[in-house]
Design a protein around this nucleic acid. Structure first.
Lengths: 366, 366
DNA sequence: GTCGTTGCTGGTAGCGCTGTCAACGTTCCT
DNA sequence: AGGAACGTTGACAGCGCTACCAGCAACGAC
């Protein structure tokens, strides 16, 4: 015997079709491809839907059409400021589209990523955004086999699965070191935490630049697998300083570490940039406002997320980009903390006049 | 005539049932309520599913059962650190459960919230997490009428829709001001940005505490609707200082503003806490590491998210909490920036010994 | 005048799963 | 021993929507 479900007060497509005096399939088409209807029926269905307050049942649609309108997003962290900017871009781009975002957190584990990927793919997403280029072989095979567009974000590299948008962390680190050398700094330390693949590539860039200058020394590098924090920046810098007291600059793998180094310098009464230059990475908002203002490498995180989602949605709807790999670049934002080496040991700037100038500096926010 | 769809390579429940030698409905029950099966059939279905690599089709399940396994989450911002902690808690709690998180960003607009709520409710979510207690009348009516559990997070107040978890921003602000008074500060300014309802209630708490002490003066309050930032903290403090140069403490509505005030003080060579005490709000990680270390009001954001999601899932599955309203409280973390008023104008601490002690301080991270 | 061609519309038959109820076998109670 | 109570299983009929084709009218080309 059949069910005696309460027919769930909701109005269905059939009701809309009846009120509009068309067949259900015509009404269905109205919601998916209005241009296919004659103008007369289009307006009839439209007003009928509005009158009844019709909302399509997505589960039924997904079941019947064998696809969903879900964009899966795999990111390694929810805490990291960097990803919240990217996410904001993704959500902004998806807003107003028919697609909804399904977010999952890999916690920097490519095994977890593989597991989540399997889960996502089983639900036939409309598209997928994944972080980075270091998937497991199994993940990569699944991505290749997936019949939906895919965007890899955060960095660019050879051999994209489908589309790719990011920048070269290696080149960005090299540019930061080049800037320090231009300013006369020679003995540049590296401080890194978490050491995910992108931080690793920043380290590789640092190493190559230092080697080019004939200044590389393994003892100048301090890293840890521990998640990053301001406090950790101070601690790592303390280690580095114990090893290499005559260092004249530090390149930090991110801005939180840089802030930690700055505070530690203040505690130790090390003048920045007089005795030590500091360069961070990402150009978070506070970098422009610190005392001294902190040099950093600006990355276009919000744009990355927004562009990735826009490209993905376009690809889902059949408009593939001319250029599937997009390098959004970076920019070394030169501030006080890395200004030219000098012999005196007093902070370069203090007082309100300079402060006001700093406040006017552009930041990565939009 | 029927369709000639490619039967989509996927294996279905029916195949699993056939291999296991049971009816489809029995196999179905295995995935929803394994205890209802005899042990023999349970293991047969289990191994059949594993052998075939069966993954349930959620769209079909949602359509047939008239409900989804989606938890809707409405938060006002993706940028704000505070919400990323809450979100992390929510995602952590949902992991391993059958429920998936559907996130939407209201951008601090209750009208946008109402719109999103309508959208969510149409899809019959399993549960809903909404931020705050200041919904529109229409939103509130929809929430009351929704036939799913609902948790309001971030603050507690009278008249919960269903469940509620948070703390009193009003009391927290009062406690911060009380702490400043205990330390001998009297002329306490207030710096606030964004001025969402929770910040507004912090301001209300500040005002009431100042009035209790007979020290309230409207000129001590500087606020703006602009989104918060470190830079903005410095700018607002500059305004405040121009009005009230003899202020001896500042209570900042959040930690970013507090950091901005600290940097501005450094620029102006105002000693903290010698000439000015600073108290922030939220106790972000960097507060323990700044120089001087910054006093703040610790709030349990991660726990809030995690507990909210856990309570919600329990309620969805019929285990309603004994206590539907949960106050997670707060704690004033007293640090150097608000230590007792003194006449000299040098920072209270400098040097590595003190720094190490600071690093060991507990923080809100887990 | 006939034959495509194009544009629009509708009928049919599911998509893969689960709610409801009935039916069965077993155990326990009186 | 009879019956109630319980635990376990299966049949059936959809959930609300869309893919696939067929059909029809209008139009132009030959």
């Amino acid at each position: 015997m059949g069910r005696k479900r309460t027919k769930s007060g909701k109005i269905r497509l059939a009701e809309v079709a009846e009120l509009a005096g068309v067949s259900p399939i015509t009404a269905s088409r109205f919601f998916r491809n209005p241009e296919a209807l004659s103008v007369a029926k289009r307006t009839r269905v439209e007003s009928a839907a509005k009158e009844l307050g019709y909302v399509p049942n997505l589960a039924a649609r997904a079941l019947a059409s064998q696809r969903t309108e879900v964009i899966g997003v795999l990111i390694p962290s929810l805490t990291n400021n960097v990803f919240s900017d990217v996410l904001r871009g993704i959500y902004d781009a998806s807003e107003g589209s028919r697609y909804s975002i399904q977010l999952s957190n890999t916690r920097y584990s490519i095994l977890q990523e593989e597991k989540l990927l399997r889960l996502f793919l089983a639900q036939k997403p409309a598209g997928l955004i994944v972080t980075g280029i270091d998937q497991t072989a199994e993940s990569r095979a699944m991505l290749q086999a997936a019949d939906c567009p895919i965007v890899q974000i955060m960095e660019i590299g050879p051999d994209p699965v489908d589309m790719m948008i990011g920048f070269s962390h290696y080149d960005a680190a090299r540019a930061a070191i080049a800037h320090l050398f231009e300013q006369g700094h020679r003995k540049v330390g590296f401080v890194g935490a978490r050491m995910d693949p992108r931080v690793q590539r920043r380290l590789d860039g640092y190493i190559s630049a230092m080697k080019d200058a004939g200044s590389f020394d393994q003892r100048l590098v301090v890293t840890t697998a521990t998640p990053t924090s301001v406090t950790l920046g101070g601690a790592l810098f303390t280690d580095l300083l114990a090893r290499e007291p005559d260092m004249d600059a530090v390149f930090c793998a991110n801005d939180d570490l840089a802030l930690g180094v700055l505070f530690e310098c203040r505690r130790r009464e090390i003048a920045v940039p007089g005795q030590l230059a500091i360069v961070g990475f990402n150009d978070l908002e506070f970098m422009a406002s610190a005392v001294p203002t902190l040099t950093s490498v600006r990355t276009n995180r919000y744009e990355m997320g927004k562009t990735a989602a826009t490209m993905l949605i376009n690809a889902i709807e059949g408009r593939r980009p001319e250029q599937p790999v997009l390098d959004l670049g970076f920019k070394v934002i030169e501030r006080q903390s890395s200004s030219a080496r000098r012999s005196d040991s007093r902070p370069a700037v203090s007082g309100a006049a300079a402060a006001n100038k700093m406040i006017a500096l552009p930041s990565s926010h939009d």
